[in-house]
């Protein structure tokens, strides 16, 4: 993540009552939830595959991946199409299901505070910072660290 003296743009979204933000660079677009094709024998957080205008993307449940209860599908459910670096100059596209996709905000580096340890999130500290706007807390997430786990890295050879 860049730590320059300029403001950066973040996309905010909600998982349950909590508000999160990720850098917009990794967000390609936001789409509504349509048809999901389930892939047998996959972990529960991997909801299946979706067809994004001819491109096949895996869809992940962001809440399950973070150790929260499964996402309830509502009219507000959205898919964030993310472009994640997977090493070797390779980028991986995935869809991440969230409860609500909110807005794009600009943040100055000094507005972001160090993140304390979060015991209730199972993933190893994907929260890199906090923004405290008069008690309204937004957690900044390192999106690559959540989804760029080992399963994303070595795939190419198994898919012909």
């Amino acid at each position: 993540m860049k730590r320059e003296n300029e403001s950066q743009a973040y996309l905010t979204f909600a998982l349950g009552a909590e508000k999160f933000a990720i850098t917009v660079e990794s967000v390609q677009e936001i789409v509504e939830l349509d048809q999901v094709t389930k892939v047998p024998n996959a972990p529960e957080y991997m909801l299946g595959i979706i067809n994004l205008r001819g491109k096949v993307l895996p869809l992940l449940d962001t809440r399950l991946k973070l150790g929260l209860p499964k996402t309830e599908i509502t009219k507000k459910s959205r898919i964030m199409v993310l472009d994640i670096e997977a090493g070797d100059d390779k980028n991986v596209q995935i869809g991440a299901l969230v409860d609500v996709a909110k807005e794009v905000i600009q943040l100055q580096p000094e507005e972001i505070q160090e993140a304390p340890d979060f015991e209730n999130y199972k993933t190893q500290a994907p929260i890199t910072g906090l923004v405290n706007n008069q008690g309204d807390i937004t957690m900044i997430m390192d999106i690559a660290r959540i989804f760029n786990t080992s399963e994303i890295l070595h795939l190419e050879q198994s898919v012909i």
Partner: peptide, 22 residues
Amino acid sequence: LGDAYQKQDFISGSTILGNGKL
């Protein structure tokens, strides 16, 4: 199928049908 499904190697991929479904 994308990188997420390497453990499901009994599925070699997906295909998009005429009606847009997979």
